[in-house]
């Protein structure tokens, strides 16, 4: 089984500053993986490393089964759409397709033509005159017509209005449904990715905080709240991700593989955004102290 991404101890520094460090992540083929984190967390660095536009400072990385950009075949396997859907303003839509056909050995002419018609782009229109949404759709068309096995998208919807955002993600999802490619897309907004991703990588302060299947991740995190108490005395199978205390009440986001058994806690399920915010909230315990496990007496 070839993975879309295998990174081991991957790091990249610019001068003395680490933009990404200790990144060990595996993403299976066929996933739509969301890369989230605040601005400057290392999202673009990771995508650029995957595209082969940057070389790692340490560690190793394989995308679609090989080192990034190692040869022409590998370049054809990986598509990359940089931030803000770059297109050539003075070239027409048709020029872009001709250019794409010329540059990509696996170019699918019929697909590109069909999609341009489907999204109602005038082939004679200059790209500089297109709306933001149309420009994004044109860039996506070119990225898909090269028939990549892995598509990397850096903040693809950040500059789009809600409708264009929806149309872009719908087009992407429909393509994935039909062709089963792997996708890694970044956004600083979880809400953009919540529906379309089935895997989430959370980056913060140049490190991977979380990399997991979305359903598993949602099943394993809970918000618990109840009368104020010391969280150090929680059973060992609960890991506190985030917590907050008032004089009367304690609220915490915990990670657990099983149910929360203590009846003193009220328990709530979380949305993806809740989980991400909890991890970004910062009060995560690096090394949880040894604590007794709470079990059921039988």
């Amino acid at each position: 089984m070839i993975s879309a991404l295998t990174a081991t101890g991957l790091g990249k520094c610019f001068g003395r500053k680490w933009a990404l460090r200790d990144c060990t992540v595996e993403i299976e083929q066929g996933r739509v993986a969301g890369l989230v984190g605040p601005n400057g967390a290392g999202k673009s660095t990771l995508l650029n490393l995957m595209a082969g536009l940057l070389a790692p400072s340490e560690g190793s990385l394989e995308v679609a089964g090989n080192r990034p950009a190692i040869d022409e075949e590998q370049l054809g396997r990986v598509g990359f759409l940089a931030q803000d859907s770059p297109v050539y303003a003075s070239l027409t839509v048709a020029d872009h397709l001709r250019f794409g056909a010329h540059m990509n050995p696996r170019w699918d002419r019929a697909f590109a033509q069909e999609r341009v018609t489907a999204i109602d782009l005038d082939p004679k229109q200059r790209a500089g005159k297109l709306s933001g949404g149309q420009r994004a759709q044109l860039a996506l068309t070119i990225a898909l017509a090269k028939r990549p096995e892995l598509l990397l998208l850096d903040e693809p919807v950040a500059s789009l209005d809600p409708l264009a955002r929806r149309e872009f993600l719908a087009a992407l999802a429909a393509y994935v449904a039909e062709h089963g490619i792997s996708v890694v897309l970044s956004s600083h907004l979880v809400a953009d990715l919540e529906r379309v991703c089935d895997f989430l990588v959370l980056l913060s302060a140049a490190r991977v905080q979380l990399a997991e299947d979305v359903d598993t991740l949602l099943a394993r995190h809970r918000r618990i709240f109840g009368p104020r108490r010391d969280l150090d005395r929680l059973p060992s199978d609960l890991r506190v991700v985030w917590s907050s205390h008032t004089d009367k009440q304690t609220t915490a986001v915990v990670r657990t593989d099983g149910p929360v058994l203590d009846p003193a806690w009220q328990i709530e399920e979380l949305t993806l955004e809740d989980v991400v915010l909890a991890y970004m909230g910062g009060s995560a315990e690096a090394e949880p102290p040894a604590r007794p496990k709470l079990g059921v007496a039988r």
């Binding site: 739509v32 929806r166 149309e167 719908a170 087009a171 429909a174 449904a177 529906r195 379309v196 089935d198």
Partner: peptide, 10 residues
């Protein structure tokens, strides 16, 4: 997927 913009696996 094309109407809801969701993941096909969903």
């Amino acid at each position: 997927v094309a109407t809801l913009a969701i993941n096909p696996n969903t």
